[in-house]
Computed example of a mutant assay.
Amino acid sequence: MTVRPLNSVFIGGRQIGANCLRVLVDMDAPPQLVIPDPDDVGVDSWFESLVKVAKELSLPTLRGARVKDESAIKKIRALKPDIIFCIGSMQLIPKEVLAIPPLGVVNIHPALLPKYRGRYSTAHAIFNGEKETGATLHFMDERIDSGPIIMQEAFPIGNEDTARVVYDKFTEVGTALFKRFVESLKRGEEIASTPQDESKATYYPKGLPSGGKMDPSWDEVTKKRFVLAMTFPPFPMPDID
C-alpha cells in the first residue's frame, strides 16, 4: 500500500479539534503548524485547550493569531500545505487562505448538511423536534457551511438528549469521520465530494432557538424541547419562567 506524506496546517478549537489533532499525530501525519483560536490561552474549559494539546504533542503553534491576519496568511502560504484542516474553530477562513492548499480546506459541521448551516446547530435540531442529526465533513468555500460534502454520518437524537449530549455524540462521530478521511488521504485516494442541494438548505444565524427565551404560550412538548435544546453544561440555563 502506498502511503502518501501529508503536509497540512491545522486550524482548530473545541474538543473535536483536540481529538482530531491527536488523530493526525497518532497516524504519523502531524501538521506543519497548529493555529488555535485567538482566545485560547492554554487552559482547559468545557473542552481541552488546543494550545495545551499542541504543546503536549510538541507541535509548532501560532498563538493569539487570527487566520485573516496578513502575518498568518504569509506563514501559511510559506508552508505550502497540501490541505488545511479547520476543525472546531470559531474563525472564518478568508478567501486568501482558501486558495492556498491544492486539496482544499476541510471542515466538520455538527449537522447533516445542507440542513442546519450556521451556529448552534444541535440546539436548533432539538428544538425543531428532529429525530436525528449528524456530522458532515465538507470542503469550505467563501459562504457558511455550503461547500461540497465529502463524508457524512447520521446518529439519533434521543427523547431526553440535551444539546450537550448531542454535541458530545457529534464530537465522537466527527472524530471517527476525520480518521477515515485521513486514512484515505494517506492511501493517496482521490477526494470525492458532492455539491450540496441548495433547495434543501436551511441556515441558522448566530442566535439561539427563540432568541434563548421561552414563550409561555407554547405547549408542553415545545417547552420540553426548548429546555433540552438550551441545556449545555457548564453554561447556565436562561430564564425560562
Rank of each mutant, 00 (worst) to 15 (best):
R119E: 12
G174D: 05
I157K: 06
T222W: 05
E198L: 13
A54P: 05
E96S: 15
E142N: 02
L92P: 03
L103E: 14
G212N: 10
P5R: 11
V41C: 10
F232V: 00
D145T: 01
G174Y: 12
I16G: 02
A176H: 10
R117E: 00
L185H: 09
V182R: 09
F47Q: 08
K206G: 06
V106T: 08
L113V: 03
L103D: 08
R14C: 04
G17L: 05
Y203K: 12
D44V: 02
V9M: 09
G129D: 07
A29S: 15
I191M: 09
I83M: 10
Y120I: 04
E160S: 09
D239F: 03
W46H: 14
M140I: 12
L6H: 07
I126D: 02
D145L: 00
S146N: 08
C20P: 13
L113W: 00
F181N: 11
R4K: 15
T136P: 06
K206H: 14
L228W: 07
L92Q: 07
A29K: 07
G129F: 07
E153R: 15
A154H: 11
V51D: 03
V3D: 05
R4D: 04
H138P: 06
L103S: 09
T61A: 05
I157E: 04
R143N: 15
I108T: 09
I144K: 00
D28W: 09
T2E: 11
V34F: 13
M230I: 00
G147C: 05
D40P: 00
L62R: 14
S49M: 02
L50P: 00
Q32R: 14
P60T: 05
I126V: 06
P236D: 11
P209H: 01
R77F: 11
I16H: 01
A18Q: 06
S45Q: 08
D28E: 15
I100R: 08
Q196L: 06
P102E: 13
L112H: 07
K223I: 03
I126T: 07
V221E: 13
G147V: 08
C86R: 14
V182I: 15
V34K: 04
K68W: 12
E172P: 09
H109V: 04
Q91Y: 05
A192W: 10
A111C: 03
D28Q: 14
G134M: 05
L208Y: 14
E189F: 08
H109W: 02
P156N: 06
Y204W: 15
G207V: 11
I108A: 05
D39S: 07
A111V: 00
Q196P: 10
A192R: 15
G207P: 03
T133P: 06
D161T: 01
L112A: 10
Y203F: 15
A201P: 03
H124M: 08
V182T: 05
G42M: 13
L79E: 03
T222A: 12
D40R: 04
D145H: 00
E132H: 05
D215K: 04
M1S: 15
L177D: 02
K179Y: 11
D39P: 00
I191Q: 08
A123P: 02
G13S: 12
D39K: 15
I157F: 02
G147W: 00
E130A: 13
T136G: 07
E56P: 08
K68Y: 12
K200N: 13
M1D: 09
D219F: 10
N159D: 14
T133N: 07
S146C: 04
I191V: 15
T61M: 05
D239H: 01
